[in-house]
């Protein structure tokens, strides 16, 4: 080990390693972005549904499901 003069060429492994690290981190960030976007969409839809439901049902809050659904479709 001490007498070794030539340094082995292991750059291929190095590149593979860094590619893996960046790809995995990139995928994770992308997945987080996608998840939060989907949730944000869900949130807006739900908020609209909520608003529509409370507008239609008025003060009597506990109306049946069908009312809510119809109001959303329109």
């Amino acid at each position: 080990m001490f007498l070794q003069t030539t340094t082995p060429d292991t750059s291929g492994y190095m590149i593979a390693g860094y590619v893996v690290a960046f790809v995995v981190m990139g995928l994770y960030v992308a997945s987080m972005y996608l998840r939060s976007r989907n949730l944000q969409q869900d949130l807006t839809t739900l908020e609209e549904m909520d608003k529509a439901a409370s507008a239609q049902a008025g003060p009597a809050k506990k109306k049946s499901k069908s009312v809510t659904k119809k109001s959303v479709k329109r």
């Binding site: 080990m1 070794q4 340094t7 082995p8 060429d9 292991t10 750059s11 492994y13 190095m14 390693g17 860094y18 690290a21």
Partner: peptide, 8 residues
């Protein structure tokens, strides 16, 4: 001794 791979 190990070359570039040590950089990982």
């Amino acid at each position: 001794v190990m070359g570039d791979v040590q950089r990982v």
